[in-house]
């Protein structure tokens, strides 16, 4: 079912000159605006939730709130992560809830550059149906 996402930090349109958190998935580099990022944690197994979209790994508790983990490889139609490979989670705030993006690794914080693909979280969330 489509989820309507209110205009909020995570879904704000990308502004190239703002700082972004850069991260890698399958050898490619992506970015999300730093304003909406709360923290970056090590990936751990998530609890599966019945009826969730297949791009949702599950939920993990973090600092008293539940974080929904989104498997970005599935979202972006990239090949699955090799077993045993390390992964990290970028935790975003989104209208009071917490969304966690599962990525291979985080590179750093910088303004956007040409080879980096900015992610539109709003579109990702709409695709979670």
């Amino acid at each position: 079912m489509p989820i309507s996402v209110p205009e909020d930090d995570a879904a704000a349109p990308a502004n190239a000159s703002r700082d972004h958190v850069l991260f890698r998935i399958a050898g490619r580099e992506f970015a999300v605006p730093v304003d909406s990022v709360i923290e970056i944690v090590r990936h751990r197994d998530a609890t599966r939730v019945p009826g969730a979209a297949r791009t949702v790994e599950g939920i993990i508790p973090l600092r008293g709130q539940m974080v929904t983990l989104l498997d970005l490889r599935l979202c972006l139609a990239l090949p699955p992560r090799p077993s045993g490979a390390a992964a990290q989670v970028i935790v975003l705030r989104s209208a009071g809830d917490r969304l966690g993006l599962v990525v291979d690794g985080v590179s750093g914080v910088a303004p956007l550059s040409n080879h980096v693909v900015p992610l539109d979280i709003g579109t990702l969330l709409q695709g979670m149906s």
Binding site: R44, D45, A52, V56, I59, I60, P61, M66, T68
Partner: peptide, 22 residues
């Protein structure tokens, strides 16, 4: 659980039992 997962009949929510899993 968070609004991204919609309305789940039969689930009241989630709890942290103290070992970092929900």
């Amino acid at each position: 659980i968070g609004r991204f997962l919609g309305d789940l009949p039969g689930i009241a929510g989630a709890a942290d039992l103290g070992d970092a899993t929900a």
